[in-house]
Write a protein that binds this DNA or RNA. Structure first.
Lengths: 334, 334
DNA sequence: CTGTTAGCGCATTCAA
DNA sequence: TTGAATGCGCTAACAG
């Protein structure tokens, strides 16, 4: 089928106008029953499918929404997208995904692609290397709504959805301390992420609260790669007084760090304890998982993000910026 | 910006025609240097972005490709999508994702959405419950190319990309036997999937080859849910002569089954061994992973699938059906 | 109840 | 070198 059936073709074969066909197809009340039936019948026989592009052109809407996030392969993000896709479908939208790979330049590129591509709105979880928001300002200038989730840019005039990471960090560290541990390290994320600051803040809060002096050698940043995590964890273990526990930026960092510990003969949840963020499902398959993890409910975050976005798309006049804080939860294992 | 800048607006402000603007923007040689510069300058000043919908309407192409697969949250699939997205971007396409959740009706629905939405082509990994291909025939009728990957429908006239699962099963079972194990069970997938038959065929081949009689109680199907897997694994363990090893449909099935074993006090890779398919990255974090897993290279499958699809989109005349078999690899752990 | 007309934003053929 | 005219496929206001 080189040329798909169009309304014009149906109109020709039926000897009526295109507008008649158009109205018949939409079951417009002003069309004669007889005509309507003939049109529908022929349309079915010719496998007529309305050309979405033409409709979009008229409606000035594509019903496409773009999602930009670091990695599709991280279950945290794929869970969020899964939720987003679910809501999107139920509301008649499609989801276009693009990964930034935590690379600032690539994030710029794909965000640009999305506007060139004509999405009605964009959901973003920032690349860890992004330190400049000009590409989002650009999108705003075009009147395309954005909603940030998890890795948000709170200084932009767009809505965002996130969890209170500081509170989460506080709970996690409190829990580690309640186990009688005091030499607690922080394997934090890159300084470009707000979430990194927030974890640090929670960590410091609890340490101060308990009068535990902060050992600066215990606080390290990783770029979220396996290699960097392994290096930083090794450095921690090489300290004259290695930590008894580590609060990791997320489960991936925790897992990579735990692997280093095991290679050095340390028993997890015995010689050394881990706290982390995300509570990824596959941790439930581990015999020695991080003992505490902050569940961040990516499914809820994704759901809320797309609800906000669709609201912004469908009623741009009345929509105002929102900051939604999704409740987190400390999960204790074993 | 309620009304984005259009060529018409630029033309008006410059006192030229839309056609001039159009040509100037494309750097058409027949446009005076002076005019071209003025157009470009004003376009930039007004933040002109060409309306992709209008261009699509003219070009009769959307540069959107749809991907339908069971679950975005399974790393096997997210890895494939990740590869697909990568190639897509580099070729100027965008990826629209939809998950079938292994549900036949939902698969029908989203495939229909994709054609209504106007994608140029579709990549599919079948839902496990799909037993009828009429929705794909429908797509074919509209001249939209499809490429299947991993969970393929080889009886359809579309290209497909997969690994030789039978060969993989043969290698895995051979390996288990080489460990001195002979009571080997098969925790297979749903009967609707070709991949299920293929695993069975490999299993039977090796058992016959070694003269090991096939215990029909050892061969079970699961619907890929955690609960069903747990139930079937329990049944295996309840047999008067429980298996010494299990070949699982994939790593998820293996993990769920292994959990049941552990709960019963069995030591993995000691009291009972597991072979599986996928070799998911997070298995490397397990202290007792499946001892053998068939790596299926989802990244390669995705890459090949989209290459075939783009070829079919861009040269529909010369394109012919292809079946691509991606090499697999037996990964032995520990 | 149906046809006519116009237009969405852009590319392109044909004139000038 | 530029403009005028046409059409991609569809919707909708207006007219009859």
């Amino acid at each position: 089928m080189v040329h798909p059936t169009t309304m014009k073709e149906i109109a020709r074969q039926l000897g009526v106008t295109v507008s008649t066909v158009s109205r018949a197809l939409q079951n417009h009340p002003s069309i004669g029953l007889r005509t309507r039936e003939r049109v529908h019948e022929l349309a079915k026989r010719l496998d007529y499918v309305p050309n979405p592009t033409a409709i979009n052109l008229k409606r000035r809407r594509t019903h496409n929404i773009g999602v930009v996030l670091p990695f599709l392969t991280e279950q945290f993000f794929s869970t969020a997208i899964s939720a987003i896709e679910d809501v999107a479908i139920s509301k008649g939208y499609s989801v276009v995904v693009m990964q930034s790979r935590n690379d600032y330049e690539r994030e710029r590129l794909v965000v640009g692609n999305l506007v060139k591509h004509g999405v009605d709105g964009i959901i973003v979880s920032l690349a860890s290397e992004t330190q400049n928001n000009s590409h989002f300002l650009e999108v705003n200038k075009h009147g395309i709504p954005i909603v940030f989730f998890d890795r948000v840019a709170r200084n932009l005039p767009n809505s965002c959805v996130y969890v209170d990471v500081t509170a989460g960090a506080i709970e996690a560290v409190e829990y580690l301390i309640s186990l009688g541990l005091s030499r607690i390290a922080l394997l934090n994320g890159p300084g470009t992420l707000q979430a990194t600051d927030e974890r640090l803040k929670g960590y410091v809060t609890v340490m101060n609260r308990h009068g535990i002096p902060i050992n600066r050698a215990y606080v390290r940043s990783v770029n979220l790669s396996k290699e960097d995590t392994a290096r930083k964890m090794s450095e921690l273990l090489d300290l004259p007084e290695p930590p008894q526990a580590v609060l990791a930026f997320n489960d991936y960092v925790a897992l990579d760090a735990m692997q280093v510990c095991r290679q050095r003969g340390l028993a997890i949840n015995q010689d050394i304890y881990f706290g982390s963020f995300s509570n990824l499902p596959f941790c439930s398959y581990l015999e020695h998982p991080p003992i505490a993890s902050i569940e961040q409910f990516p499914h809820d975050m994704g759901t809320k993000a797309i609800q906000l976005l669709i609201a912004a798309i469908e009623d741009p006049q009345h929509f105002t910026r929102e900051e939604v804080v999704i409740p987190h939860k400390l999960i204790v294992r074993q």
